[in-house]
Design a protein around this nucleic acid. Structure first.
Length: 125
DNA sequence: GCGGTGACACAAA
DNA sequence: ATTTGTGCCACCG
């Protein structure tokens, strides 16, 4: 395994497992991942986790995680945002000129992903 | 143990 | 629809 891979059992370890299971052509919001990881309010920590995984992208579909607005999170890193958009487009995820996509259409089925906690209502689809 | 840091979320204005 | 402010978290020094 890669050195940057988080410890199994840790929050980031669960994030890794969840993100790894998101099917191609589907996306999940940071908040969704946090919820599945067992902490509904840890969306911010999910972002931190993915940032930490950078460089160890080998096989991890990190690009399938976007913000709750249905858009790619841009935090000063145009490089990453551009690459993310390219990778998503490559999987058939349609993104408007506004940089927005239809969550209702591309959001992954939470019930089909690893879950370490409780799913809030409205979480499924 | 304390105080940043940051790929977030949500309510309020 | 946009912009702010505030809450929340795992990690790292």
């Amino acid at each position: 395994m890669s050195r940057l891979e988080p410890a199994v059992g840790s929050f980031r370890g669960r994030v890794w497992e969840i993100v790894r299971a998101i099917p191609a052509g589907r996306v999940l919001a940071y908040g969704d991942v946090a919820m599945l990881a067992g902490d509904r309010k840890a969306a911010r920590a999910v972002g931190g986790a993915l940032r930490a995984f950078a460089g160890d992208h080998d096989g991890l579909p990190w690009h399938r995680v976007i913000n709750s607005q249905g858009s790619i999170s841009f935090r000063g890193d145009l490089q990453r945002a551009t690459l993310q958009r390219l990778l998503l487009a490559r999987e058939g995820v349609v993104i408007s000129e506004q940089g927005r996509l239809e969550m209702g259409r591309f959001r992954a089925n939470l019930r089909a992903l690893p879950c370490y906690g409780a799913l809030d209502e409205g979480a499924g689809f």
